[in-house]
Simulated scan of single mutants.
Amino acid sequence: MEDTKSLCAKIPIELHNRVRASQEESGLNLNQYVEKLIIEYYQMKEMKYMAQTQTRTLALQISEELFARIKNHIDKTPHLTQKAFITELIIKALDEAETQETK
């Protein structure tokens, strides 16, 4: 299991109530929900950076079964888009491949 560390911050009550309501709707505990929000924030920041650079379209065909698995995963993860999910997978795979190449 990954090491963890607490993060505490005071926020306005109205914002706190919104966060807790969304957290309860998500079915996640508070730790999981806040971690997910922070990860999504950094993913959005990365996507914004990528949008500012030249982009290209990558299209491919996949099996119906694989598409259904991807769609199911994305549907279970609020605020996750296909683009963010696939981009993150590609980046992780390339990072791993480049790390192996340098060894």
Rank of each mutant, 00 (worst) to 15 (best):
M1R: 13
M1H: 04
M1S: 14
D3S: 07
L7D: 04
L7N: 00
L7R: 05
L7M: 03
C8K: 09
C8G: 15
I11T: 05
P12I: 07
E14D: 11
E14N: 05
N17E: 07
V19L: 06
A21Q: 06
Q23V: 06
E24W: 03
E25Y: 07
L30M: 13
N31P: 04
N31H: 06
V34Y: 09
V34E: 08
I38F: 14
I39V: 05
I39E: 08
E40C: 12
Y41A: 09
Y42G: 00
Y42M: 09
M44N: 08
M44I: 10
E46T: 09
M47N: 01
K48Q: 15
K48V: 14
Y49I: 10
A51C: 14
Q52S: 05
T53A: 07
Q54Y: 04
Q54A: 02
T57R: 15
T57N: 11
A59L: 15
A59Q: 15
L60Q: 09
L60M: 09
Q61T: 08
Q61C: 14
I62Q: 04
I62K: 02
E64L: 10
L66N: 09
F67I: 00
R69E: 12
I70Q: 02
I70M: 08
I70G: 02
K71Q: 08
N72K: 15
N72V: 08
N72Y: 10
H73E: 10
H73F: 14
H73K: 13
H73P: 03
D75A: 12
K76L: 12
K76E: 08
K76T: 04
T77F: 02
P78K: 06
L80T: 03
L80G: 02
T81P: 00
T81M: 04
T81Q: 00
Q82P: 02
K83L: 07
A84E: 14
A84C: 15
A84L: 06
F85P: 01
I86L: 15
I86P: 06
I86A: 15
T87C: 10
I90N: 00
I90G: 00
I91W: 01
I91F: 00
A93R: 15
L94N: 04
T99R: 14
Q100H: 08
Q100N: 03
Q100W: 12
E101M: 07
T102I: 09
T102R: 13
T102G: 09
K103S: 12
K103I: 13
K103R: 10
